[in-house]
Nucleic acid binder design. Sequence first.
DNA 1: CGCTTCATTGACCCAAATCAATCTACGTGG
DNA 2: CCACGTAGATTGATTTGGGTCAATGAAGCG
Lengths: 238, 238
Amino acid sequence: MTNPLTRKLARFTDLDDEDVAELDRLAADPVERRASADLIREGDRPEDVILLLRGWAHRYKVLPNGDRQIMAYLIPGDLCDPHVFILDRMDHSIGLLSDALVATIPKRAILDVTNRRPAIAKALWWSTLVDEATLRHWLVNIGQRDAYDRIAHLFCEMWERLSEIGLTTGGGFEMPVTQEQLGDTMGLTAVHVNRVLQRMRSEELITLKGRQLVILDMDRMRRVSDFDPRYLHRTRRR
Amino acid sequence: MTNPLTRKLARFTDLDDEDVAELDRLAADPVERRASADLIREGDRPEDVILLLRGWAHRYKVLPNGDRQIMAYLIPGDLCDPHVFILDRMDHSIGLLSDALVATIPKRAILDVTNRRPAIAKALWWSTLVDEATLRHWLVNIGQRDAYDRIAHLFCEMWERLSEIGLTTGGGFEMPVTQEQLGDTMGLTAVHVNRVLQRMRSEELITLKGRQLVILDMDRMRRVSDFDPRYLHRTRRR
DNA sequence: CGCTTCATTGACCCAAATCAATCTACGTGG
DNA sequence: CCACGTAGATTGATTTGGGTCAATGAAGCG
């Protein structure tokens, strides 16, 4: 099961061989993209859905004064925009955070597959709802927690999502996100993010050099940020 | 068109007479509920979807330390939880902000209607995506704007949504939300919300007594908070 | 090897929080 | 009809988490 989309959706529903084959067909013919390219720009009317197969991307919005808010991180297996089907124009942009491998899927193809394969349709719907739940948790995070807890919560979530697709090694994973970007995610300045990271290091909670983050004490990390992974719905409803 | 759900969905798609009749059937047999009751509690596994016909409700989450974050306001015509169909347990609660009239719709009934009436299915999907876009805008709001601008943005959004269902009178509308709750919405304290409101009053930007809010200068309100109503998608895609 | 992008550190500042009283408007029971 | 009780609004005094400004290090790379 090399296709990360299949890997992700299989967590939600049972997929039969034909479902898997369909998903592989969607991910066929992927293209390399260089880091920091935008996949979709605010105001676009995209006609395709982009599937991320390798690398990270982020969903973000820039205000008139230049401030930037990151609203989501996309990792392998994520579809950039199921919205495409109904909404008019993009109200935000999607940019790469690392070199990446992406597949471009025409709207048509998605519609066909979801019509023919109810299991896939259901899994995509499920994944949309998980995205929405994640957004709600980010809101709680930014609205109510202090800088330290916010960052702890974000790290827990990243680890959890990456572990679902096999991209963690123990408590460690590769995180191609600068401190500036972490700040734009949590409504903090890069300077303050830096100080919080220093503190986490001095408390031996994490290790972070280059793009390698290691969570040394997962229990403490979760406790401090009140992280409850249930909203990511790793398990199926019976 | 007295049914506010019909009124809301009609903005998205053309509904024929039969669609309208179906929606009226869903909203049949509503019940009065008193303010401050919870409609759904975190941890529940709701078996029905609740439709709000009159009054306001809010989606919120309480942290272990007692802090509360409000994640959405629900107004007449809103469905409390389409999520019910796929997700497991509620990861947040929904409570009333005022006396209200609500209809309880069994899952089954929604499934039937969406199977039989594609226009309704499409409109519900659209409305879910609008909810998600709204959440993204709240994130930007809390993450990047200062207290004054946040509150201005929220007031613009409230006015916009209420005007869609005919609940505004010029720049005014009834807002059954305390300053404490406004604070829990925007990640601010009630005290600070109060001071911002004082300032808006002194600048003759608003009038607010009891539950009656009047926006005196809509242009200024929008300009200051960089409010762009497009994310609420009042108009249809051609 | 020189650039450029990130990370780090220090000094100082401010928006919003905190703490602590009032004040006001209502709804209720007597 | 009125005294109370209570939820919500208001105000003042003080504190603080995080921002701002400004350098100075590192590290990766063409």
